[in-house]
Nucleic acid binder design. Sequence first.
DNA 1: CTGAAAGCGCTAACAT
DNA 2: ATGTTAGCGCTTTCAG
Lengths: 337, 337
Amino acid sequence: MASRAGRAPGVTIGDVATAAQVSRSTVSRAFTRPQLLSQETVKHVRAVAMRLGYVGNQAARALSTGRFGNIAVVVPDIANPFFPPLVRSLQLAAETADLAVFLGDSDESAEREAKLIARLAPQVEGFVLASPRLSEKLIRELAATRPTVLVNRDLDGIPRVLIDSSGGMTEAVLLLKKLGHQRLAYLAGPRDSWSDQQRREALTQTSAKAGLTVEIVEVGRPTYAAGRDSVSAVVRSGATAAIAFDDVVSQGVLAGLEVRGISVPTDFSLVGCDDTLAALTTPALTSVSAGAATAGTAAAKLLVNLLEAVEPSADCVTIATHLVTRATTAAAPKSTF
Amino acid sequence: MASRAGRAPGVTIGDVATAAQVSRSTVSRAFTRPQLLSQETVKHVRAVAMRLGYVGNQAARALSTGRFGNIAVVVPDIANPFFPPLVRSLQLAAETADLAVFLGDSDESAEREAKLIARLAPQVEGFVLASPRLSEKLIRELAATRPTVLVNRDLDGIPRVLIDSSGGMTEAVLLLKKLGHQRLAYLAGPRDSWSDQQRREALTQTSAKAGLTVEIVEVGRPTYAAGRDSVSAVVRSGATAAIAFDDVVSQGVLAGLEVRGISVPTDFSLVGCDDTLAALTTPALTSVSAGAATAGTAAAKLLVNLLEAVEPSADCVTIATHLVTRATTAAAPKSTF
DNA sequence: CTGAAAGCGCTAACAT
DNA sequence: ATGTTAGCGCTTTCAG
């Protein structure tokens, strides 16, 4: 009741109303719909509110309006360098729309993702799910309840931003072919990752068309260590060039190759994806660009539209990729090792 | 009123009460204070709630109790690789205490940091400020209002977790001396960064004691480009080894050195800080470990204590660092270039 | 052990 | 243009 412990200290709308000699509704309106009030009243109320240090109580507002002013972004692993720029630009864009953002890290687990979403759902207006590991069914259920935008997951009818790696992938394969490589390895990412499926497909199709052989090496969770440890399989395959699911794996491969005395790009060509680490590294990695930041902004815009607009806006934004050629690709060695 | 638009759909406590044939208070108690109820009732109510998919409405709870179940972590730049592991472990730990976490990215600006905090304050129970750029005054004001934990900022009386780089720094200097270097360069970070001040001090003191000269090169915002562009100054200084404010800068330096044909570690030794990229890179960087993840967990614990405990707990947690020697340090070249 | 009822701070119909 | 009033969904005293 009135005297409950733990209540955050704060000036209420009632205090302001009393001090300003107006009703509480007037104070409320002075902030939410000033058009309904006379200029004077608005100015007066606001001045008093300011003097008292009044800050609206979000919880109460939310309870009354059903709008929270919060959104949530959930990612499988914020420590994966692909996501920070995404989250960053998303939060910046959200700020413009005066939305605060919750961050959820699902630790690559569909189950934990579901829990996070359930926990967050009652206090957010919408979700951005980046590379969700959740089942299609669950995602659709969520999207039916709350405005939801997907990143790198292609579910028809649900607003989504897709980074289309096929452009960059195709360029990569073509470049490798031109350099004289004939046998490629692909260090594949997690099975339930849409990005991986897409990359796999673009890669195999282009290779087939170009008459190249491609060996698929499963690395599982895309980590540095996994990449490094996959090198033996790559070498065994007889490939002279490799494309990795992402730059982290690519770095691992670089390390594994070096240990074996195989030098890049002299003996072996290497291409990464996402361009997250690629430019920050010596030697600089050839990589397929990804524009995670662009995706973040796009996702935020999509969600804001979803929240504000009556009309559903564009429901799928595609971001193209291209190959960024740097130090790790060169002509195929004359012979295999 | 009842039929307001935009209200989020959801099962309320009333629905559960009706379905379970008990009062709303009972449902409430079944979740918040089950000791007060009979085992059976609790089980029954919970089962019904689960079946209906009931999730407590945080806003309403908050309104009633003054507790939000949310905390906020604000960082200067989530894209800086130091922070993701910190945020990640923090969010994991928060989850254990059933706290949801807001993420704020201040973009290295004290002003934006203040705005974020003001925006978030009315709906969080506490803050974790990681490497805050805010003035001491403002931080103290905040800490007086809301439980606040600092990371890498040393303000007496405010709970904080400090990563003490001096250990690793000292080791680095000593190693470089042992390798025969006599003139070091320090690529310094942002002035208002506590970490930088601390590193600067440890470095200059140890160097003085060890009889080494150290040239300080200001790089400003710690980025790859800034590091690369600082190389000319480093070379001019006549140093044969450099310690960089962090690994990102260190990578930049590596690139700049390479461009000039100076090879690491043959001609030049290089040490980074934070060990964020260092292990993921070829060549692997010697770096001062930082344990951002540990810091995140510690900060979360500190904050949870602050929220729950009556007694203030330990108010400062220090995390030690050490040098991780990898490929980029070696004996000093015979002569300067 | 359980129910009834008041009220958290705010907004939005409905008056005036 | 402003005041009155009825809740939003939940917790918690107070009765029983």
